[in-house]
C-alpha cells in the first residue's frame, strides 16, 4: 500500500476518533444543565407518544385541593410547607422534604403523594408508625383536608 494512502488512513483515523468525541458531546448536550433543580432534556413529542407516562406532569389538582401542609402540634407547630404536584418525604433524614425534629420519628418516616385530585399518605416502614386520625396506617390512604396526621409527637394537617 502506498505511503500516501497510509497517511490518509492515519489522518482519517484521527478524524474518526474526534467524530466519536463530538457525537458523545452532542448527545450530552441535552442534560448538561447542572445546578438547577430542573428536568433536564424534556422528552420530545415523539417520545411522549411512545411512552405516555412521560407527558409533562399535570398542573397541581385544582380548587378545593390541599395547597399547604401545616404542622399543628409538636415541637415544630406553626411550620407550613407549600405542596407542589410532587411527592414529599417526611422524616428526620436530611433529604426529607419536611425534616421532623422529633425523636420518635424515623429517618424516612412517611411519604405524602398526590394522585388524581387527592393526597395519599403512606408509611415507609417507620419504627413508631404513622397515624391518620386515631388509626395507624397499614397501607397508603387518602388524606382529607383538616384530617390529623400524627408522626411521633408531631401532628400535621392539610389545608387548602
Amino acid at each position: 500500500m502506498s505511503e500516501l494512502v497510509l497517511t490518509a488512513l492515519r489522518l482519517g483515523f484521527l478524524i474518526l476518533l474526534w467524530v466519536l468525541i463530538l457525537s458523545v458531546v452532542a448527545a450530552l448536550r441535552r442534560d448538561l444543565s447542572v445546578g438547577k433543580k430542573v428536568r433536564a432534556g424534556a422528552p420530545s413529542a415523539r417520545e411522549v407518544r411512545k411512552n405516555p407516562d412521560l407527558a409533562p406532569e399535570p398542573a397541581p389538582p385544582a380548587k378545593q385541593s390541599a395547597r399547604t401542609l401545616a404542622v399543628v402540634g409538636g415541637a415544630q407547630a406553626g411550620t407550613t410547607l407549600e405542596l407542589a404536584a410532587s411527592p414529599i418525604l417526611l422524616g428526620r433524614a436530611q433529604e426529607a422534604t419536611l425534616v421532623l425534629e422529633d425523636d420518635y420519628a424515623s429517618g424516612r418516616h412517611a411519604r405524602l403523594f398526590p394522585q388524581g385530585s387527592r393526597w395519599f399518605i403512606e408509611d415507609l416502614g417507620s419504627t413508631n408508625g404513622t397515624f391518620l386520625g386515631e388509626v395507624q396506617l397499614t397501607r397508603a390512604q387518602p388524606v382529607e383536608l383538616g384530617q390529623k396526621i400524627r408522626i411521633g409527637k408531631t401532628i400535621m394537617e392539610l389545608r387548602p
Binding site: R92, Y104, S106, G107, R108, R111, G125, S126, T127
Partner: peptide, 11 residues
C-alpha cells in the same frame, strides 16, 4: 423504600 433506622436508639 429504605428501612428507617430504629429511631429511639438513635435519639
Amino acid at each position: 423504600p429504605q428501612a428507617a433506622p430504629a429511631t429511639q436508639e438513635d435519639a
